[in-house]
């Protein structure tokens, strides 16, 4: 815990006593840890002399912030307009079935977490799914298993 606090303190320092920097701080912290834990929020609050409830209130307003530790691999399925038209919902259902979780959840072995997003900016490839930073365009339900297996087999990657 000690090293964590130290790093948050360091990353907050340039923003301290400036107005309107909370989002940036939260983004920095999330980048570091992958999510905002109870401890990190309470540390940020202490550093900024705010209450953790206020920080949490701001953070939960934005969908970009996560409050649970994400899985090793983050699966995102696009449900934006183009993907919706090209069967994004079916793709989502297939992924959910394959991973045995609903979107917004994490598999029991913490290997995968699943999220829905609204547009990745590559609508020509619809329907799109993203695993970690890799984009899989024109994904059909049959390809899902193959894609996920790549990560399952290569869990340590």
């Amino acid at each position: 815990m000690k090293s964590e606090k130290f790093s948050i303190k360091k990353s907050i320092k340039p923003f301290k006593d400036k107005k309107g920097t909370l989002i940036t701080i939260l983004q920095h912290v999330q980048k570091e840890y992958g999510y905002l834990s109870k401890e990190t929020i309470s540390t940020i609050a202490d550093e900024l002399s705010k209450s953790e409830n206020e920080i949490y209130g701001v953070a939960t307003f934005y969908s970009q912030f996560k409050f649970n530790k994400p899985g090793k691999h983050q699966v995102k399925v696009c449900l934006g307009t183009a993907c919706h038209v090209r069967g994004g919902h079916e793709l989502m259902e297939t992924v959910e079935r394959q991973l045995v979780i609903k979107h917004g959840e994490k598999t029991k072995d913490s290997q995968f977490s699943l999220e829905r997003v609204a547009c990745m900016g590559c609508c020509a490839l619809a329907p799109v799914m993203v695993v970690d930073k890799e984009i899989y365009g024109k994904t059909t339900s049959t390809k899902v298993k193959q894609i996920l297996n790549k990560y399952k087999n290569n869990g340590g990657r």
Binding site: K38, S42, S51, N53, E54, Y56, G57, F61
Partner: peptide, 25 residues
């Protein structure tokens, strides 16, 4: 809670339909 008492126990959390007055986590 925030402006008069300065405690900041209550805050708006989440947004849109799920908005709720509450505490962190």
């Amino acid at each position: 809670c925030q402006d008069i008492r300065g405690r900041g126990t209550l805050a708006f959390t989440q947004r849109s339909f799920r908005t709720k007055v509450g505490t962190a986590f």
